[in-house]
């Protein structure tokens, strides 16, 4: 309750501040702008990319039209090679034995998404403008996750696991919002967004392990491999509301 009241007070002061500024600004019309970077506002004063995770860019073309480009680019890779040694020293019978394992973990993730939107403003000469937008989105994700623990000697600890998949998706975005050109170079926007996309995944998985069994009082080792390849298709829809700020340059 206290926090809500505090947030309200801060918002009032921030808006007073921007409103005073707005009175000083004489050029606040959209057609005077050419390009903008858009930031998403969250948790009072915390910024994120408005569309996509990496950068969000908007180009005003005049006549109430604008184009928005959002980009997500993520690459992560991690490779570990380890030698593991287990040693048991049995003192009472003076016996030592040890096991050596080659341990390897590989993880790679790549994601790349592009959002493109055409925005149409209803009243481009006004400081308060409403707009709608639509456009395509495409994306690709690759993931490769492997871990192996293997000894030269037969052992039930010997395992290998591989999981790889490719995700492709294509879809569309629809937006409906309002933008307030409160300062010469700054506008605030609130926007409803809907995303729907079709996704396709091809996935490969394999799991290898060793196990033993006794046949005629003799221990015999086996290697088992379980693997599958599968294709998944799914259709998703989600929506949310964003508050943002666009800074023109």
């Amino acid at each position: 309750m206290k926090q809500k009241r505090l947030v309200k007070l801060v918002m009032i002061f921030l808006f007073c501040f921007t409103a005073l500024h707005a009175q000083d600004s004489t050029e606040t019309l959209m057609n005077n702008r050419q390009r903008a970077l858009e930031f998403k506002l969250s948790n009072l004063i915390s910024l994120n990319s408005f569309q996509g995770n990496t950068i969000s860019y908007k180009k005003y073309c005049g006549d109430g039209r604008a184009y928005r480009l959002g980009l997500t680019m993520g690459i992560n890779g991690n490779t570990i090679n380890a030698d593991k040694k287990y040693t048991y020293d049995c003192q009472d019978i003076d016996s030592i034995y040890s096991e050596l394992y080659d341990d390897e973990d590989v993880a790679t993730d790549v994601s790349f998404n592009i959002y493109l939107q055409r925005l149409r403003y209803f009243n481009p000469d006004s400081r308060f403008q409403s707009f709608y937008g639509y456009g395509p989105m495409i994306g690709y994700t690759y993931s490769n996750d492997q871990d192996k623990m293997w000894s030269d000697e037969p052992s039930s600890n010997n395992t290998k696991r591989v999981l790889k998949y490719n995700d492709y998706f294509i879809g569309a975005t629809i937006s409906l919002g309002v933008e307030w050109f409160c300062l010469k170079n700054i506008s605030l926007l609130a926007e409803y967004n809907s995303y729907f996309y079709f996704a396709y995944r091809d996935e490969d998985y394999s799991y290898t392990r060793m196990y033993s069994t006794n046949i005629d009082n003799e221990k015999v080792w086996f290697k088992s491999i379980n693997s599958y390849t599968q294709i998944k298709r799914f259709f998703n829809y989600y929506d949310y509301v964003k508050l943002g700020v666009a800074i023109q340059f």
């Binding site: 040693t87 049995c90 003192q91």
Partner: peptide, 14 residues
């Protein structure tokens, strides 16, 4: 009976 045990890992990665 009693025994001593140990495990060591030496790893490198990027």
């Amino acid at each position: 009976g009693t025994y001593d045990y140990s495990m060591t890992t030496i790893a490198s990665g990027y």
